Amino acid sequence: MVKNWQFLLAILWLQLSCVSAAKNEVQQSPQELTVQEGELITINCSYSVGITTLQWLQQHPGGGIVSLFTLSSENKKNGRLIATINLQEKHSSLHITASQPRDSAIYICAVGHSAPQAPGVHT
């Protein structure tokens, strides 16, 4: 009997999270995602505040948090990972092409923004 390994597909489980200083300023979707190996993964992040930077972070189970991208105005690519940002629409996406089992992780969208100044305070 010949084993056909081509039909074995790894299932990736991704838990998605978002970080912001205030409630409901950052929305990430989908919240959870299960895909088959080789599929394209797209994670979306929308924010309602003006930002100075947006970071995409990754945390493997039992591991530390790793920065994948820091975006301020331009799109970036690193191997199979592509991060896009649209400042006018207040939206960013993380794309993972040809997903692999090692991509199973928690992905976090974190935004940095400057706090509003108090009246009469000048910097």
Rank of each mutant, 00 (worst) to 15 (best):
V2Q: 12
K3Q: 10
N4P: 10
W5A: 10
F7M: 08
F7D: 02
F7E: 09
L8I: 12
L8A: 04
L9K: 11
A10H: 03
A10K: 05
L16S: 01
L16D: 01
S17F: 02
V19F: 07
S20W: 09
A21L: 14
A22L: 09
K23L: 12
E25A: 00
P30G: 02
Q31P: 10
E32F: 04
T34P: 01
V35T: 03
V35E: 01
E37K: 02
E37L: 03
E37I: 05
G38V: 09
G38W: 07
I41Q: 02
I41E: 06
I41K: 02
T42V: 15
T42P: 08
C45Q: 07
Y47S: 05
S48M: 13
S48L: 14
S48V: 14
S48E: 14
I51W: 02
T52S: 13
T52I: 13
T52V: 12
T53N: 15
L54Y: 03
Q55R: 13
W56N: 07
L57I: 03
Q58F: 02
Q59I: 06
Q59G: 00
H60L: 06
G62R: 02
G62S: 00
G63R: 06
G63T: 01
V66N: 11
F69S: 03
F69K: 02
T70M: 15
T70A: 09
T70I: 14
L71Q: 08
S73M: 10
E74G: 06
K76W: 05
N78K: 15
N78C: 11
R80L: 12
L81E: 04
L81M: 11
L81H: 09
I82T: 15
I82L: 11
I82F: 10
T84E: 12
I85C: 07
N86K: 15
Q88I: 14
E89I: 09
K90L: 09
K90H: 14
H91Q: 14
H91L: 13
S93V: 01
L94K: 05
L94Y: 05
L94A: 00
H95E: 15
S99E: 04
Q100K: 09
P101N: 04
P101T: 00
P101W: 06
D103S: 02
D103L: 01
S104F: 03
A105F: 04
C109V: 03
A110K: 11
G112Y: 08
G112C: 01
H113G: 04
H113I: 03
S114M: 11
S114C: 10
Q117M: 10
A118E: 07
P119R: 11
P119E: 12
P119A: 07
V121K: 09
T123C: 10
